[in-house]
Design a protein around this nucleic acid. Structure first.
Lengths: 232, 232
DNA sequence: CTACGATCCGTACCATAGTACGGAGTCAAG
DNA sequence: CTTGACTCCGTACTATGGTACGGATCGTAG
């Protein structure tokens, strides 16, 4: 924990001096006190580690706000680890969704490139077609009672129940819920660690059961047997 | 291409009216002319499609500037076909780069999630440890056979085996493995839920056995007795 | 002891991607 | 023919994540 000047700390952490000050203003790191006998503030290796933490978390896609929460959790000895875990799981799901879309984009670009012989007039560009498509209904945020789905409009919904093995805590259940919510056609999800199951309200026309099973399986859990349908 | 008011177009495209105007100001979409006999501008389905394109591309991670380029590329029906083609290729490379980055992010997040026990009021949340780490020495990714360790270089490695109590599923085993992998000097880890043990390949000069035991204990598992050494 | 660099601190500015507001004009139903 | 909703337009404001600037202070080398 030997002290160093702010510019040395900045170099050590791989950021600029201004960035350190910015983090101090944001409250992400606490500013060392000035020595009472005057002079410059002294930064120790703990601060450097904290900055590195911040940058690493940012790389992964956390915002400074989220990092603030993460750091607060760390500072709280009682804090529940599942909080941290579920935040990370949420981020991962976001990242996975982006990868899927980018792959679709890559395919579209490949098609465009293939369609163009390299000379002459270019016919139909498939980029716009691909991206201008109906854009995903996107009706998540469900189950919580309060936010009622005005999506219903007479469409017949269906509730299916999966028995799931491999969830060993509430955090796993939350992970599964988050995964399912990202699937198309899924209108509501309730996952119970205690009952070892997931109850999913779907639009039978858009949701693909196989995709749901697959998603859960890919996350390392096992979906058992047939689901119990309950037309609604 | 039937006309509609701006608010209908906004609804159709899933954005706000202000957003359409913003895109118009940015030059992403051209503002329809006002009817010469006065009245409101009329938006057609082409505009809606264009806005959807923009939003989809944004979701994927393109900035509005990049989308401008993409749209210019698309809206260039004749032009230089080879020019168009090479622009598409450039974009594709960018897309591939983004996919790579996102995959790295996903890996990082997976490591974090795997490393976090996910339950319990753990003071020792490994996510935070992992993130604060020196910016990646990264000598993990072991055991899987395929990815051979070229670390060997004649250094004498040692395998130690810990008997561990308290792992109640495969996920726990993965947690323990992840925990151990973050320790210095650890070159390989195999944790078996079935055998209730961990086999750890270490560099005896850098790894501290006590630290390993400690890490496991802090995560809520119990390390039994002496490890069985196996000089190698 | 003076000059040069580094630090301290506040404020201002940058890009990105919108959102909000206020006042005027316009349309269409009651 | 009035009222309420919608449109038009410019300007201003939001949040995120920094960067830059300018003046004052500080510390050390020559």
């Amino acid at each position: 924990m030997n002290g160093m000047s702010i510019s040395r700390a900045a170099t050590a952490a791989g950021v600029g001096v201004e960035t350190i000050r910015f983090y101090e203003r944001r409250g992400l790191i606490k500013q060392p006190l000035k020595p009472r006998n005057g002079g410059f503030r002294s930064y120790d290796t703990g601060v450097v580690a904290r900055i590195r933490f911040i940058r690493q978390a940012q790389e992964i896609g956390f915002s400074l706000h989220e990092i603030e929460d993460l750091l607060a959790l760390e500072a709280n000895p009682k804090a529940d680890c599942s909080e941290v875990r579920s935040q990370a799981a949420l981020k991962r799901n976001e990242v996975l969704r982006k990868i899927t879309q980018l792959k679709a984009m890559e395919q579209a670009l490949n098609r465009l490139i293939a369609a163009c012989p390299g000379s002459g007039a270019l016919g139909a560009c498939t980029i716009l077609d691909t991206l201008a498509a109906p854009c995903a209904p996107k009706a998540r945020t469900i189950a919580n009672g309060a936010a009622t789905n005005r999506i219903k409009k007479g469409r017949a919904m269906k509730t299916i129940t999966f028995a799931i093995e491999g969830m060993h805590c509430e955090a796993c259940a939350r992970t599964v819920r988050a995964l399912l919510q990202t699937e198309p056609g899924v209108k509501g999800v309730g996952v119970s660690f205690a009952r070892k199951n997931a109850r999913i309200l779907i639009d039978p026309e858009t949701a693909r059961e196989a995709a749901l099973r697959d998603k859960i399986a890919k996350a390392g859990y096992r979906v058992l047997a047939e689901p119990h349908d309950q037309a609604k």
